[in-house]
């Protein structure tokens, strides 16, 4: 691909020892489609930086090898979505659906995330270092979501499996229509959604929160001092008392 720009050594990089191998893709001169194709072609272990993202959508989606990608600026919708094994780092805010349908690997947002962070993520870890807005973790299917700050309304709506850690406060209707995902909130819960309830914290919960906070790099969360929210399971089990209605 002739459009690819060459790697540039960055003396300021924290781990500059091996950054000479970093490949840089410039979205000011390449299309999103070209950059994504080039990222997918990189071998496992490669490092890449995507510069001038300017809030474009669908950056670094569908990666399937263990590469590290840094998005150097704001990303638009679905950044890092559908990924497996890769680590995607957004140095700025992200739009809707960051890490949507993630299978494995990590997507980290060094800023705020818009709606539906980690939507339908099957595996992997999505970290938001700022706040996440509405419907964070919607329909989560086994992945982990860690938000350092607050989450908006409807967090974990219909979430089926996986773990969500909220380092700040949770908005109204937390865990509405929840299945088997579990939510831990370090701050205040403004309100629970239908069929969500607060449960006692077990040793296993504390261990899970400690591990997730460590993986996310959060040092402001006390694993012993979080609120566990899970499903009351009254909504998705068929109630035999309602047989007559059918």
């Amino acid at each position: 691909m002739g459009e690819l720009t060459t790697a540039v050594h960055d003396p300021d990089s924290a781990d500059s020892a091996d950054s000479a191998d970093e490949v840089v893709f410039d979205l000011a001169v390449m299309s999103t489609r070209h950059v994504n194709a080039a990222l997918r072609a990189l071998p496992a272990g490669a490092r890449a930086q995507v510069v001038n993202p300017a809030g474009r959508h669908n950056l670094a989606v569908g990666l399937s090898r263990a590469i590290r990608v840094r998005i150097a600026g704001p990303a638009g919708y679905y950044v890092g979505g559908l990924g497996a094994a890769a680590d995607v780092d957004v140095d700025g805010p992200a739009g809707w659906g960051v890490g949507e349908n993630l299978m494995s690997g990590t997507v980290r947002v060094r800023g705020a995330a818009s709606q539906s962070a980690a939507a339908s993520a099957h595996g992997g870890l999505v970290v938001v270092e700022g706040d996440a807005s509405l419907r964070a973790g919607i329909s989560l299917k086994g992945g982990r979501l860690a938000v350092a700050g607050d989450v908006g309304r409807y967090c974990a709506f219909l979430a089926q499996a996986g773990t969500i850690l909220v380092g700040g406060d949770a908005g109204e209707a937390l865990g509405d229509s929840l299945y088997e995902a579990v939510i831990y909130v370090a701050g205040r819960v403004r309100g629970l959604g239908t069929d969500a309830r607060v449960e006692d914290l077990t040793d296993a919960d504390v261990a899970a929160v400690r591990a997730l906070a460590a993986d996310a790099g959060f040092d402001h969360v006390d694993p012993q001092n979080v609120t566990r929210v899970a499903s009351a399971r009254s909504l998705y089990h068929f109630d035999t008392a309602q047989h007559a209605a059918y």
């Binding site: 300017a54 809030g55 474009r56 704001p74 638009g76 805010p93 739009g95 705020a112 818009s114 709606q115 807005s133 509405l134 908006g152 309304r153």
Partner: peptide, 22 residues
Amino acid sequence: SEYRALLGLPGLADATVFEPEP
């Protein structure tokens, strides 16, 4: 509607950016 539409506004780096509550 989207963050990218803010890019280029003078002083954006120091702006308070938030999503309005429903």
